[in-house]
Design a protein around this nucleic acid. Structure first.
Lengths: 246, 246
DNA sequence: GGGGAGAGATGCCGC
DNA sequence: GCGGCATTTCTCCCC
């Protein structure tokens, strides 16, 4: 580790080469953009990615304490015994400035990664499962096709129950809350209006529902059905069985 | 940089000492918990914090591709020419496994940081501004105090207009959308019911409103008032003026 | 710990 | 670009 001023050229070169920078430092941070913030002196971990994204982390916690989106440009100058690290995103009128008093470590590296995440257990997986096995919703439920249901908004599933009543189903992969109920209400009213119907059934499908949400749901004459989102990822499951037999 | 297997002890020691780990590696990643995911081989940056939080970043993008919350425990073993990095959060039934084929760099460090962020420009700042200068909402508007308005839920501001009509004001610091309108509707209905009133005014205060939200708002007889959230952070602003005269 | 709501939300898709 | 909506949302606050 060299002197603080020796990092000025190192960092600027790495930025120019579009490498990913990772360093830890003692610094203060100012941000101005969608909001404004200030953070006093402390040790942080900083990651600057090749696309300009910057993430600044404190030693605890899940989320970055400060950050800027991809497309941000960065520069460093040594000034008044400090490294001044400046980040700007002109299009978004956002600015971030770090006054760095010490660098604990620094690394810059070109990273290669062309993979993208394979994910299972989303709300869409849940809706797909219900479209495939509509009896999970209710015996005799007949879902309508996707073309139909896009016309009136982003309704997860709608179709007819065994008595041919039009039914709207809203899925949530987590505990359904008040806003899930108002969302369902919005769809039911929209469809009633668009189709000129007096009665449209509304169903909320989720693993759980909060107490207040259930009350509101029942007040409005809607129904709740407890179903868990499927989170079976074949590729992963196979690996798990072989590797460590969970 | 030593051989891959030499990192096994390094990493486990750093974990035991509750240091913050930062390293870059080539790996595959499996996650199982709230959902399940798999990510094929590629270069990533990994941060493990002293509280157990782990963040894994690809070379581009704002958000971590995989992560676990504070409270996660970690361990590493060298096995089949790979470093197997395992993370578990038993309470949350979450598991993450990295198969590491190469470490590009590794650093572990104890970080000191006791500061917390000072932030201005939130929805609360906006509500505070309106409570202080209620004429911004409307001439003659008289807000009620905070004790009162907590009794019926998380209503931003409510009070009486110049004609003494009870009025509920919902603030949004960004563009108001459909859910902001249904949220306002929920509050108005709640208050009507609780107070046995026939008429309660509902106002949405935000810098902008989406077209569909405006239509729905008007359909229900509510009003929109365009006001921007204040984002003036005194401490920061002073610094800016002195330092670089923005 | 559950519930409710904001966030400098972010990210995705559709028009 | 805006709009609508899910997110392994995360975070905070209050009960």
């Amino acid at each position: 580790m060299g002197d603080l001023n020796s990092y000025e050229e190192n960092i600027n070169q790495a930025l120019q080469k579009k490498e990913s920078l990772v360093f830890s430092c003692n610094c203060t941070i100012k941000y101005s953009g969608r909001a404004e913030s200030f953070l006093g002196k402390g040790d942080r971990i900083v990651v600057v990615k090749e696309d300009g994204a910057i993430l600044i982390h404190q030693p605890t916690g899940n989320s970055p304490i400060n950050y800027m989106k991809p497309g941000t440009s960065h520069s460093v100058v040594f000034q008044d015994q400090k490294l001044v690290f400046s980040s700007k995103h002109l299009a978004q009128k956002e600015y971030l400035d770090m006054d760095i008093s010490k660098i604990h470590f620094f690394n810059a590296h070109k990273l290669e990664d062309t993979e993208s995440l394979v994910l299972a257990g989303t709300e869409k997986d849940m809706a797909d499962m219900l479209m495939k096995d509509p009896h999970l919703i209710e015996e005799g439920f007949k879902p309508l096709n996707n073309e139909e249901h896009t016309k009136y908004g982003f309704i997860d599933i709608f179709g007819h129950d065994k008595d041919n009543n039009l039914t709207i189903v809203e899925c949530k992969r987590y505990t359904a809350d008040l806003s899930a109920v108002t969302q369902l209400r919005r769809y039911v009213e929209k469809i009633k209006d668009a189709k000129g119907l007096k009665e449209v059934r509304g169903m909320l499908v989720a693993p759980k529902i909060s107490s207040n949400a259930l009350k509101m749901l029942q007040d409005w004459g809607f129904e709740f059905k407890a179903i868990k989102a499927p989170k079976f990822l074949e590729r992963y499951d196979k690996g798990q069985k072989k590797l460590d037999g969970f």
